[in-house]
C-alpha cells in the first residue's frame, strides 16, 4: 500500500505535532493567556465587544494598577534589572538572610535528626515537639521572634531557619531509621566502631533522604524570605514586593514575584541535579 505524496506530507506534519505536542500545546496556552491579559489592560476586548455590548463593554478594560500587563511587567523588569539596578540590592539582601537561615537549618537540623534516628531515647524525648511544631504553621511564631530579636537580619534568619529546619530534621531522622539493619549488624559483628558505622553505612544511605529534605527546605525557606520581610525590612525582595503592593505598583510586584519564582526553580533544579548525580553510584535494587 502506497500513500500519496500529499498524504505523506500531512502525516509528517501530524507526526511532528505529536512528537512535540507537549511543547506546542503548552506554549499556545501560555501565549493565549498572555494575550488575553495584555488585551484586558489595553482595552482590546472592550473595543472589540463595544458594538455588541455597548457601554458595558468597558468592564473588559481594567486599570493597569489592578492587573498590570505582560508588556508593562517586562518593561518594569528591564528597568529594575538593567537601568536602575535597584533589584540587585534587594536580591543580595534577601539572599544573605536566605543563605544564613538555610545554612543554620542544615547545620542544626541534620545532625540533630541523625542523632534522633540513632539514639532511640533522644528520639522519644524530642518526637512530640517535632510533630507538634511540624503541624503548626511556623510563621505563627513570627510575632514572638520579633519580640525576641527585633526586625533586623536576625529575625529573617530565624524565621527562615524555623521553616527550613523541620523537613531537614525529620528526613534525617527517617533516613537513619530506614538504614538496612543487616548492613549495620554485619558491620557490628566485624567490630566496626560507631564512627566508622556512621561514616560508611549510615551517612551514604541517608544522602537521598537528606537531599529530599533539602529540596523541601529550599521551598519552605522561600516562604521565610517573603514573610520575614513583612515587618518593614529595609531592603529585600519581600520588602520590595510589599512596598510596591502598598503603592499599587502592580508591575513591580509581578517582577518581584517572578524573580522569586525564578530563584525557586533554579534552586530546586540544582538540588535535583545533585540528587541525580549522587544516585549514580547506587546499584539499582
Amino acid at each position: 500500500m502506497r500513500a500519496s505524496s500529499s498524504q505523506a506530507q500531512t502525516s509528517a506534519a501530524v507526526r511532528l505535532y505529536f512528537a512535540h505536542e507537549r511543547a506546542i500545546l503548552g506554549t499556545l496556552m501560555v501565549l493565549l493567556v498572555l494575550i488575553a491579559w495584555e488585551g484586558l489592560e489595553r482595552g482590546w476586548w472592550a473595543d472589540a465587544l463595544r458594538p455588541l455590548l455597548g457601554d458595558s463593554a468597558e468592564r473588559f478594560k481594567l486599570k493597569p494598577i489592578f492587573i498590570s500587563s505582560p508588556t508593562l511587567i517586562a518593561a518594569a523588569a528591564f528597568r529594575m534589572f538593567f537601568v536602575t539596578g535597584e533589584i540587585w540590592r534587594d536580591l543580595a539582601w534577601s539572599s544573605a538572610g536566605y543563605v544564613l537561615g538555610l545554612g543554620l537549618a542544615i547545620v542544626i537540623g541534620v545532625p540533630f535528626g541523625l542523632a534522633g534516628g540513632w539514639y532511640r531515647r533522644l528520639s522519644y524525648a524530642v518526637e512530640p515537639f517535632l510533630a507538634a511544631l511540624n503541624a503548626t504553621p511556623q510563621v505563627a511564631f513570627l510575632p514572638l521572634i520579633v519580640i525576641w530579636v527585633g526586625t533586623g537580619l536576625g529575625q529573617r534568619i530565624l524565621i527562615i531557619f524555623l521553616l527550613a529546619v523541620l523537613p531537614l530534621a525529620i528526613n534525617a531522622h527517617a533516613a537513619v531509621r530506614t538504614t538496612d539493619p543487616r548492613l549495620i549488624k554485619v558491620a557490628g559483628s566485624f567490630g566496626a566502631s560507631d564512627w566508622r558505622l556512621f561514616r560508611t553505612i549510615i551517612l551514604p544511605s541517608s544522602i537521598p533522604f537528606l537531599l529530599a529534605g533539602l529540596r523541601l527546605a529550599v521551598g519552605r525557606g522561600m516562604i521565610g524570605v517573603v514573610v520575614g520581610e513583612i515587618y518593614g525590612s529595609a531592603a529585600g525582595l519581600g520588602a520590595m514586593i510589599n512596598q510596591a503592593g502598598a503603592r499599587f505598583q502592580t508591575d513591580k510586584v509581578f517582577v518581584g514575584v517572578l524573580t522569586i519564582v525564578a530563584a525557586g526553580v533554579i534552586l530546586v533544579e540544582i538540588v535535583q541535579r545533585v540528587e541525580r548525580r549522587v544516585d549514580i553510584w547506587r546499584t539499582p535494587a
Binding site: 522561600m222 517573603v226 510586584v253 522569586i260 519564582v261
Partner: peptide, 23 residues
C-alpha cells in the same frame, strides 16, 4: 495545557502573591 501554570504556581510560595491578592 495547564501544566506550565501549575508548575509555575508550585514553584512560588503562594503567600508571595499576597500583595496582589490584597489589591
Amino acid at each position: 495545557l495547564i501544566g506550565p501554570f501549575v508548575d509555575t504556581l508550585n514553584a512560588v510560595p503562594r503567600v508571595t502573591l499576597l500583595p496582589l491578592i490584597i489589591i
